[in-house]
Design a protein around this nucleic acid. Sequence first.
RNA 1: GCGGGUGUGGCGGAAUUGGCAGACGCGCUAGAUUUAGGUUCUAGUGUCCGAAGGACGUAAGGGUUCAAAUCCCUUCACCCGUACCA
Length: 803
Amino acid sequence: MTYNHHVVEKKWQKYWHEHNVFNTTNDPNKENFYALDMFPYPSGQGLHVGHPEGYTATDIVARMKRMQGYNVLHPMGWDAFGLPAEQYALKTGHDPKSFTKKNIENFKRQINALGFSYDWNREINTTDPSYYKWTQWIFERMYQRGLAYEAEVPVNWSPDLGTVVANEEVIDGKTERGGFPVVRKPMRQWMLKITAYADRLLDDLDLIDWPENVKEMQRNWIGRSEGAAVTFKVVDSEDTIEVFTTRPDTLFGATYMVMAPEHELVDKITTAEQKQVVKAYQDEAAHKSDLDRTDLNKDKTGVFTGAYAVNPVNGKQIPIWISDYVLASYGTGAIMAVPAHDDRDFAFAKKFDLPIIPVVDGGNVADAAFTGDGLHINSEFLDGTNKDEGIHKMIAWLEDHHVGAKKVNYRLRDWLFSRQRYWGEPIPIIHWEDGETTLVPEEELPLILPETPDVKPSGSVESPLANLDDWVNVVDKNGRKGRRETNTMPQWAGSSWYFLRFVDPHNKEALADYDKLKAWMPVDLYIGGAEHAVLHLLYARFWHKFLYDIGVVPTPEPFQHLFNQGMILGANHEKMSKSKGNVVNPDDVVEQFGADTLRLYEMFMGPLDASIPWSEEGLSGARKFLDRVWRLIVDDQGKLRDHVTTENDGTLTTIYHQTVKKVTEDFEALHFNTAISQMMVFVNEASKADALPVEYMEGLVKLLAPIAPHMMEELWQELGHDETLTYEPWPTYDEQYLIEDEVEVIVQVNGKVRGHLKVARDTDKVKLEALARADEHVQKFVGTQTIRKVIVVPNKIVNIVAK
RNA sequence: GCGGGUGUGGCGGAAUUGGCAGACGCGCUAGAUUUAGGUUCUAGUGUCCGAAGGACGUAAGGGUUCAAAUCCCUUCACCCGUACCA
């Protein structure tokens, strides 16, 4: 009887569900293991074959850990706030809530069809008020500690749509929907002070087991650099300009200054004669996109303000220019320019004929800036020192004279936390008529997102919530009028702490019980796409550290071991996309081949982190292997085969124990492709054997169960058991069976293989050399040459060097 | 440009304290089973020359070593991140 995946997969999914097989256990005698997937945004498109790749990986580990005697927490939930639902609502007038609910149902159906061992009793949904109550609670705690504040930040405003659009909705300066013009408009927005945690976010990367490239991306994103702040006085004015520099040692070479066109002092210091050109340049810069200002513009531009500053170290007057090569958003928005030792300053000085004074010996200022190390020149008290020493001495001098200090600067900026959207967590803030801003009292949380029959643009920079007068307008007990914050939180908010809620999802008193968090955190294995390498993972780490500081969570880091799965490409080696017509739908695969085949195939394709094209033949190859396993154990009548026996003639002993070892180690290391290959080798050997010890067949079924759980449950039943194998003990191996008594030693002549010796394990060097020399074929290649040297590595190789 | 990574048969890949390159799977070839197709089973399958047996071969070039896919240097290609970060 051939294997029928339709029947068997449904049968076991029903069994698992009805028996609550995957409920998280809390046995105090067992160790805990937390295996987590990055929870998905339930899009209307449904599941993509890329989703199950990461999900299968964590599921395999979760299932193995259960069998190894751990309590396993393996949950799933929904990151369900987000732009698509809002856009859908705006377009159709439908409610994002019911739309989202429908999508979640579809996602859940698809996920369950793949046989993942999630504990659905812990399902969470970021749009559920009982969940976002705690998202709001965290915001309030941050506000109370000064980590949430308001600032004036420009947004993309579309007058035609009457709404603010996100960066990803702006294409070539026009709205994605309708192609209307977009203008930058300043608006008061909420910010979170992630920069206060910059050093810890950087340093604690050393505590965690993450891919080096992800750590490196986070380091670059934080962008810590050490240097000095230096204050320049503006000539004939009370104003001063502060700059940040990593090379304070080159201060004697600073021959001009440059400010960003947007710098607040520009208008103030610009002289009357220069007003017009400066204004014109500012306008031009304001209309250029960021891309124009950087990528497309390698040629330096700028104008002189007419003002001068005093170089604090030598009293020289230097001109102040503005140029868009200086970014308002980095450092202080102004720089001291040292053209002799900075490539950008050099290009600018060349173009505008500004003086170039070398202060570090080594380069030739006629050709290029010299950025290397060397001895200082033209630098009075620094002359003769090298770079490091010069920096040190200059900082001391600056501090002594109160014109500067050592400073650390970050590229990381504070987190823009508000969105002008309906479909997000309301920010629990009230703005009162007397100017006071207060939090919604904690006991009134959650602040529920009000339902509305029709989500429509507010017509202003505010979110659609501004339309809901009953909700927006509030009056306190003294009759003071107030207005609720109409901004909502970004999607990142709910995903910055969801892994904590899984630990204790129904808690009404706290976001999660501290002792339970202590038992489960940090997450032991976290798998998801590389696209979250920076933002999600940095935000989540930031919130976690904050919660750690206020005593809510017990660990400084949330995710101990992180892994990024690769992408599954279309059969044509291109990224799957509707427009390319190369998308594979998991529903179709499950229908045709079964979930076990999909899981096996995705794990066998190659290393988990590689991007590999889909192959229909590869997929049916996976099914063929599963069929082979089935036929190995079950006959045409659906009965256990006769050759599965309690007797063991020993032919499979070594390969079985090797397989148990390799599969166990490979699963642990997430090397699923090689684990599967080892099981294939074992099955090939077993197919040739006369008798199959029942112990080994049970072992094989258990080893394969994490990958192909439905068929293995069925085979486990064929082998005479009547309960799930979920909690059966994981197979073990015995070292003594791994070692073969006879080994093959290769014989080389001058590094080329010329013969093989079958000898007893640990045959000594002398004997091996003698045997090698005696080999006829070897002798032929040695011929009349003199043997100069013989290298013998027992159990491995003999290399005869002859000339 | 900078930072990180990768480069192995027709394809996906395996082998990393340096020790038989190509495990395993796909595809392909031949044979068996089948009315036939599919399935299944057996054998073969890096390239070149051949009867045995050789020579060559891990992006390209060079080096270290008894021995290099693996270590070192140079170059090239592709992928990911980033974008004048002072």
